Simulated scan of single mutants.
Amino acid sequence: MKMIVMRSSLRAVTAGLAALAVLTLAGCGGDATGGSGGDGDKVDVVASFYPLQFIAEQVGGDAVNVTTLTAPGVEPHDLELTPKQVGTITEAKLVLFEKGLQPAVDEAVEQNAKDAGFDVAPAAKLEATGAHFEDHDHEEEGGAGGPAAVLPGSAGNEDVDPHFWLDPVRYAGVVQAVTDKLVEVDGAHADGYKERAKKLLGEVTKLDGEFKSGLATCKLKTFVTSHEAFAYLAKRYGLQMVGIAGFTPDAEPTPQRIKEVQDIVRAEQVTTIFYEELVSPKVAESIARDLKVKTAVLSPIEGLSDANSEQTYLTLMRENLQELRKANSCA
């Protein structure tokens, strides 16, 4: 199984420039997205993107300073690190990341924070779901349709799906793993970490129950999204996800893929084409317009935007549940 490395040449240049600046930035502290830096005895924690930031903040509480590498409005798959961000990683006591999702972060941790880096992928129990990355350098290899012709759940696709946080059960596993790591790194505040983790795990378990009951009676079982972020969620709750694009949100779908999606929408009587906040909705809107169906937002919760910056993982997941219930005629 594999997770593809994207934009390697640009990332290599960025990493080289960042490395030159690390020594200058070391000891300066600061929030990699512009906030305040270290605070006394608090543990400096870096989270590579929002779902991990939320865990760190909820479990860490006032015992940690949390810095996120992916600012609101930035698509996490596209993240390239600044020298300041590399410096922040270098100085952190703990760096939470998912190996393979953001290659620039993988490289920065490998080069500057091996001891502090904590890859959550094993705790998430990632697997190949049939969803896939598009390889921009070889998109013609699959013939006229390219690789995007593979449907979620189909055989022959070994890309590991990184979107664990959209499955509350997998997310709970990562919450526990991060909690255990915080206790290991900062045993003096272990009781607080465990207490706050218990509360968060209770909320995530409740969320799982809401999805189970809320999606149990859907008349329609298929939903269409702008990219293949929701395979774990679909599998957990008995639905079928169809992605217009693969794991890469801004990838351009081929004409063949668009036709496949249109055929599925007609055959399965899909009522809604879902798009997301951080990527252009033009393709989703075009398909919906051609088929005279609705569009709506289904958030992959990869990062926040200006429009939902006051929301949380839990509130956004509940909004997703309501949108799925509405689109799939769930009683």
Rank of each mutant, 00 (worst) to 15 (best):
M3G: 08
I4Y: 09
S8Q: 14
S9Y: 12
A15T: 13
A18E: 11
T24E: 14
L25Y: 14
A32P: 15
T33R: 12
T33V: 14
G35A: 12
S36D: 15
G37F: 13
G38F: 09
G40M: 11
K42D: 07
K42I: 05
V43L: 15
P51Q: 06
P51W: 10
Q53L: 15
Q58D: 12
V59Q: 01
G60M: 13
P76G: 09
H77F: 01
D78P: 08
K84V: 03
A92L: 06
K93H: 14
L94C: 08
L94I: 06
A104Y: 10
V105L: 09
V105M: 12
V105C: 12
D106Y: 01
V109P: 02
G117T: 00
A121W: 02
P122W: 06
A123M: 10
K125I: 04
G130D: 08
F133K: 07
E134W: 10
D137C: 02
D137S: 14
D137K: 14
H138K: 15
E139M: 14
E139A: 13
G142L: 10
A148N: 13
P152I: 02
S154G: 15
V160Q: 08
V160K: 11
P162Q: 03
H163E: 03
H163T: 01
W165G: 00
L166M: 07
P168V: 01
V169C: 08
R170G: 05
R170C: 05
T179G: 11
K181P: 04
K181S: 08
K181V: 08
G187D: 07
A188L: 12
K194H: 05
L200R: 05
L207Y: 05
L207A: 09
G209D: 10
S213E: 13
L215I: 08
C218H: 05
C218M: 08
L220G: 12
F223P: 07
V224T: 06
H227I: 04
H227Q: 04
A229I: 13
A234F: 02
R236T: 09
R236G: 09
F247W: 07
A251M: 10
P253F: 07
Q256V: 15
V261L: 01
I264F: 05
T272S: 09
Y275L: 00
E277T: 13
V279S: 00
P281H: 06
A284R: 01
E285K: 03
I287P: 01
D290R: 08
L291F: 04
K294N: 15
S299P: 05
P300T: 02
G303Y: 01
A307D: 13
S309Y: 09
M317N: 07
E323L: 03
L324W: 03
A327T: 03
A331H: 13
